[in-house]
Design a protein around this nucleic acid. Sequence first.
DNA 1: CTGTAAACGAGACGGTACGTCGGGTCTTGTC
DNA 2: GACAAGACCCGACGTACCGTCTCGTTTACAG
Lengths: 197, 197, 197, 197
Amino acid sequence: MTAKTPDSTRRSERSRRAILDAALELVGESGYQRLTIEAIAARAGVGKQTIYRWWPSKAAVLFEAVVPEGVDPATVELPDTGDIEADLKATLRATVDELGNPRLDAPTRALTAETQNDPQLGAALAERVLEPQLQAYVRRLQAAQRAGQIADGVDLRTALELLVGPLFHRWLLRTRPLTHEYADTVATLVVRGLAPR
Amino acid sequence: MTAKTPDSTRRSERSRRAILDAALELVGESGYQRLTIEAIAARAGVGKQTIYRWWPSKAAVLFEAVVPEGVDPATVELPDTGDIEADLKATLRATVDELGNPRLDAPTRALTAETQNDPQLGAALAERVLEPQLQAYVRRLQAAQRAGQIADGVDLRTALELLVGPLFHRWLLRTRPLTHEYADTVATLVVRGLAPR
Amino acid sequence: MTAKTPDSTRRSERSRRAILDAALELVGESGYQRLTIEAIAARAGVGKQTIYRWWPSKAAVLFEAVVPEGVDPATVELPDTGDIEADLKATLRATVDELGNPRLDAPTRALTAETQNDPQLGAALAERVLEPQLQAYVRRLQAAQRAGQIADGVDLRTALELLVGPLFHRWLLRTRPLTHEYADTVATLVVRGLAPR
Amino acid sequence: MTAKTPDSTRRSERSRRAILDAALELVGESGYQRLTIEAIAARAGVGKQTIYRWWPSKAAVLFEAVVPEGVDPATVELPDTGDIEADLKATLRATVDELGNPRLDAPTRALTAETQNDPQLGAALAERVLEPQLQAYVRRLQAAQRAGQIADGVDLRTALELLVGPLFHRWLLRTRPLTHEYADTVATLVVRGLAPR
DNA sequence: CTGTAAACGAGACGGTACGTCGGGTCTTGTC
DNA sequence: GACAAGACCCGACGTACCGTCTCGTTTACAG
């Protein structure tokens, strides 16, 4: 019984791109629910087997479409001008912009939702996307703590979630519009809370 | 062209309960993905049509199973001992406990995820569950603001999300365990951030 | 365990007629396949139970619609002018006309077909409709035999089927149009075959 | 708008045979009424879609099961010993035997009945089965007419129905048992009727 | 003239089968 | 050997009717 590992050197880059593009298009047009492997294959002009050969699920296809292979997660870094509040505002505003990108909005929401059904996907998303970003926050907050802008003894993991959690809440639950002003307010209030007394 | 609204006075309460119970059981056993209308009907000893007659989707069934009809959302109220930090800690700890309830965990996650695919469900969840709770936070924070424990000019809607967002983030993304300690730390840091200067 | 025989004296003649009429109409409009108890009930403005109370199947309803209760089968009699060939021609022409009646054509074909699936219906149709007619043929042929127009020793049951079988064949299988000329030819040839030599 | 015609070169002969066999078995066991596409698929170990892909209805399946594709209808020929009465007796007796075949009896009756609901099936049955046989009768009767055994001027189409109609009548309506003796009597009487005077 | 029981209209119910969609696997050429 | 194409087995979908079972509402006979 030989493991059926396909030979990736023979892989058709043309088909790969067509599949990822088709998946992104379709999820934008009709939503994740109506996204089917058959529809992706048809739109991409590709046999179904070519998809099943290289991806384990439609979530995995979408994941690769949204998170290009090449990105090096270690690269992610927050700005450090010495002013922690300003840097956090800039970063959270950038996050707001990213989450508002209409091309990626639908697939990102779909992937986030799908993590509840697919632990594998959840792990991949955490490892490849979420944690690298959160670690960058931790590093920036550590620098601020060392600079005396954050009280000693504050758990920085919690601190970071104070910043990111509210944005995530608004984005996913759509309770209120996600704006730069909101990002600024969050940053200001959290920095106050973290400050040495 | 009249819609064929079924006569709810003739509805079988016995079947209704059996369906809701079966849905909860099944989602706990096999997850939302594998939950099917046919399986619910079979487990409940009910015809499929009886489900389709009263609910538009399996999400709607689960919603009713998790959020009983009779609950009055206006009832929700946070404790008010005069000590805002203590009251918030108690409330957030209770939220942590609720989210940890193993019977409701799977269906609640599933419903939350499903809101990304089903705007109707999202609206229902917001109206019947989410907003009533958030409004209770707002009311408690208003009292604290009037008592001078929160700085004037702070947007209380944002303040509330500072509290709730981090818990939601941990719960949904499972980045770290959701504990009472975490709830306490969040409350402490946020209250510091909101305090008059 | 009491037999649930409904009290026929309390039966609503109004409903009975509406049901039979609706059945005839519907079978004419859409064919026997699409004829459903629910459609009959809806068209007749009647509850389904009222149909199930009085008839065991849709075939039984149609049967009663086509074969009114009151008809006395013993009444059926062929003309006897003394000229067997002329009398048979007249009778067969009348049969052709009856089978061509557009109001009864569809239901009669449906009932005939249904006898293959429903032996009870077959028996009822034979007893109430078919045999009385065939017996009338036999009586008329006996008279002819006594009058020396038909050879002694000829089995009259077979003789009758020689007359009726060909018409039935054409009608049911629609191989050729069913006309008066055809009836005449059949009568002529059969009478020749039956004649004393 | 191209119809999605499946590629018949890729068709699984194994499945085709299993389906036809299962259909024949089931109709023999439980009758046409209780024959369902689902039951055929289950018995044949086949997906329902494989049936729907290749046949439009359960009648069409049964038709192919009863009337194998390969049979060449032009092949059908009646014996010609020069003695028309003897040849017809032999042929009608063979027909009696065929109609009595217990394996084919149920499906053949079902198909015949179904022609009343399904004109397509009726046309197929006429073209592939009925007319080839009837044409063979016509050819044999023509030979007899040329040989002076049948009166000039007799319409041979009618003549043939005189022979076949009575057998069909008895078979379908089950008014009397269908025997060799009956076949003989029909042949004898009809030949008398057709004879030159 | 009224009480009551049966037939009635309506339609919810537990089921079975329908015909369709898509999943994931397998097979058949083609490049 | 990867690929486009698509047939295959399978499971679930949402719908249509089945025949049974309440529900009130007429209706017609008995007291």
